[in-house]
Design a protein around this nucleic acid. Sequence first.
DNA 1: CATGAATGAGAGTTCATTCAT
DNA 2: TATGAATGAACTCTCATTCAT
Lengths: 214, 214, 214, 214
Amino acid sequence: MGIAERRERERDLQQKIRRKQILDAAKRLFYEKGFSATTIEDIAQEAELSPAAIYLYFKNKDDLYASLNLQLLEYLSQRLEGLYREEGLNAEEKLETLKDLLHDVFNFDPLILINLFHLQASDGLKNLSPERTNQLNKLAARCLRSLANIFEQGITEGRFIDHNPIALGDIIWIVFTGAVLWEESKRMTDPRKDYLKQTLDLAIDILGRGIKAE
Amino acid sequence: MGIAERRERERDLQQKIRRKQILDAAKRLFYEKGFSATTIEDIAQEAELSPAAIYLYFKNKDDLYASLNLQLLEYLSQRLEGLYREEGLNAEEKLETLKDLLHDVFNFDPLILINLFHLQASDGLKNLSPERTNQLNKLAARCLRSLANIFEQGITEGRFIDHNPIALGDIIWIVFTGAVLWEESKRMTDPRKDYLKQTLDLAIDILGRGIKAE
Amino acid sequence: MGIAERRERERDLQQKIRRKQILDAAKRLFYEKGFSATTIEDIAQEAELSPAAIYLYFKNKDDLYASLNLQLLEYLSQRLEGLYREEGLNAEEKLETLKDLLHDVFNFDPLILINLFHLQASDGLKNLSPERTNQLNKLAARCLRSLANIFEQGITEGRFIDHNPIALGDIIWIVFTGAVLWEESKRMTDPRKDYLKQTLDLAIDILGRGIKAE
Amino acid sequence: MGIAERRERERDLQQKIRRKQILDAAKRLFYEKGFSATTIEDIAQEAELSPAAIYLYFKNKDDLYASLNLQLLEYLSQRLEGLYREEGLNAEEKLETLKDLLHDVFNFDPLILINLFHLQASDGLKNLSPERTNQLNKLAARCLRSLANIFEQGITEGRFIDHNPIALGDIIWIVFTGAVLWEESKRMTDPRKDYLKQTLDLAIDILGRGIKAE
DNA sequence: CATGAATGAGAGTTCATTCAT
DNA sequence: TATGAATGAACTCTCATTCAT
C-alpha cells in the first residue's frame, strides 16, 4: 500500500509539474504576443507538448488563461488582507508598507500581473465565461475591500482626513493598475529600466501626504 | 476646370463622410464587443456598407482601429498643450482646470477613449504596424510633456514641492488611464452610474494637496 | 429599375443554383459514405467550392443535412395528403394507388429517401438540434395522419375490417421504411437489380387482402 | 500442470467477464448516444476500465461494435432455424409462433437489436471491415432463409397462396426491422409505452390473413 | 465607387489509438 | 494484465481579405 501511495504522490507531482510547465509557457506567450494572438499550438510547442495534451490539463484556452490570473489575484488578495489585519501597524505605516507589498506582488510574477490588468482592461472579460468573470470579480472585490479597510482604519485613527474609504481604495487600485500598464507600455518602446517602483512609491507618497489629517 | 474642382471637392467630402460612417460604426462595435471579437463584416453591416467597401477607405482592420485612436489622442494632446500654454493661470489653477479638461476629453468620446486605453493596455499595440505605434507614441509623449510642463511651472512658481516633473506628469496619466479603465470595468458588471468624474476629481485633489509646497 | 430587378432575379437564381449544387453533392456523399464519414471538405470538393463557401449557404453541417431531408419529407407528405383528399377513389383504390405513389416518391430521389430513413433510424436524430427534430417529426406525423385517414375511410366505407386506423397507417409506414432500408442494404452487397417495387407491391397487396372486410 | 490448466481456465474466465463488461457498457452507450457519438473513453469509463484496456479485448471500435451485433444475430438466426425445423407445427401455427419469437428476441436484448438495425440501416456497414460485413450478412441470410422456408412449407401444405417464399420472408424481415426502428423512433419523442408487440402482432396477423389460401 | 461571392489560412477542439511503465 | 499520459490526424467552423462585375 505504501507503494500505491507513493505512486499516487508521484503521479500528482507529475501532473502539477505539467500544469506548471503549460502555465509557464502560456504566461510567456500571452505576455509576448497577447492572448488572442497566442495559439494553443504555440503554447504546446513552448511547453514541448502536443496541442492535444494541453486539453488534458485545461478545459480550453479561456480556462488556461483564467487559471493564470486567478492564481495571482488570489495571492494579491491574501497579501492585502494580511496587511489590513496586521495588528502592530497604524494606517500610515500600513500605507507605507503597501508600497513594498505592491512591488512584491509585481515582482512575484510581473508577466501574470500585466496579463491580469490587460484582462481587466480589455476584450477578455467580455468573452469570458460568466463563471470565470465571477471568480475574478470576487477576488478583485476582496482586494478593494482590504484597501478600503486600511483607509477606514486611518480615518478612525484620525490620521487621514475623512473621505469615502471605498473611493480611496479605488484610487490606490487605479494607481497600481495604471502604473503597471503604463510602465509596461513604456518598456515596450524602450525596454531599458523599470521605473515602476519609483513611480508607484512617489504616487503613494503624494497620495499619503494628500490625505494626511493636517 | 471649375467643374473638375467642384467634382473633386464633392468627392473629398463624400470620402470624409464615408470614413466617418465607418469609424463611427467601428467605434460602437469595438466598444461593445471588443476589438478582436468585432469582425469586418460586423462593421460593414453597422455602417450599411459591404465588407469590401471598408477596404476602400482603410488599409486593413488595424489601420481602422488606429485611425480611431489617433483622432482622439490628437484632441487630448491639443487640449493639454492648450492648458499648459494658458497664460492667465498659475500651476495650481491649471491642476484644478485639468480635472474638467480630462472629464471633457472623456465625454468628448468615451468610447474611443476607453478603446485607446485598451489599446495601450493590450494585445493591440503588439500587433500594430511600427508606423502606427510610432504615431501613437509620439502623440502620447506630447501629452505627457504638457503635463510635465505644468508641474514644472508649479515647481518654478514655488507652489509645488520639488519632484521630478516628468514623474508627476506620468502619475496624472496613470491616474487618468487607470480610472477610465477601472470605472469602465466596474460598469461592465454594474452598468448603473458613472463615478469617473468623482473618482478622478478626488484623486487629483488629493494629489494636488500632496504636492503643495509646505 | 428594370435593370435592378433583373440583377436581383439573376442573383437569386445563382443562389438557388449554388444551393442545389451543394445539396446534390452532399446527397451523393452522404449516400455513399454516410453522414458522419462525410466531411465538409468532401462536400466542398464535390461541389467544386471551398469549404468556407458551404457556410455561405448553410449554417452548418446539420443544417445542410436537415435541408436535404425536409425537402423530400415535405414532398412525401403532400403526395399522401393529396391521395387522401382524392375524391374519386374509394379506399381500396387508394391503397392500390399508394403502391405507385410510394414508388414515385422513392424514384423522385432515392438517395435522399434512404438518407431520410437512415436519419430516422440512427444516431442522427439524437444529435440534431431540437428545432430540426421538431420539423422532421411534424412532417412525419402529417404523413402518418394521411395514411391513417385513408384506412379510416376504408373502414367507414365498410371495405376494411375494423382495426385502429392509426396502427394501420403505422404499418404502412413501417413497411415502406423497412423495405427501402432492406432493399438498399441488399443492394450494398449485390448492386444488381432493384426489387423495391416488387417487394413493396407484394407487401401492400397482401396487407390489402389481409384487411379486406369479410 | 493441473495448476497450469486451472490458471488457464481462470484466465479465460476473466477474459470473458471483461469482454462482457465492456460489451455491456458499450451496448448501453451506443443505444443512448448512438455509435459515432460514443467515444472509447466513454465506454472505458462506463466499464470502469482504462481506454487502453479496451484494446486488449477488441481490435478497435468497429470490432467492438460488430461483436455486439453478431452476438444477437446469432441468437435470432438460431431461434428462427429452430422454429422452421419444429416438427409438430404447421406453417400457420409457425407464423403465429413467430409473433412471440420476434418479441422474445426483442426482449432478449432490445438495445442490441435496435443497434443491429441501426447498423444495417446506417453509416456503420459502409465503414466496417469486409470480414465483419460478411459475417453479418451470412447470419442475416440464414435468418431470411429460415423465414422463407416457413413460407415454403405453408405453400407446400396448401395453406398459403403461392407467392415467392423468399419475398415473403423478406417482408417479415422488413416488418420486423421497420417496426423496431419506428417504435424506437417514436419512443424517442414520447418515451411512454411500448407498442412494438401490438404493432408487430397486428402486422403479422394481417399478413397472415393476406396470404391464407382462401 | 461599390459589392456579393469566394477563399486561404488557420483556429480551437476531439478522439481513436499507442506506449512506457 | 492494466493504465495514465500522450499524440497525430482530422474535423468543423471563422474571418480578414480579394476580385470579377
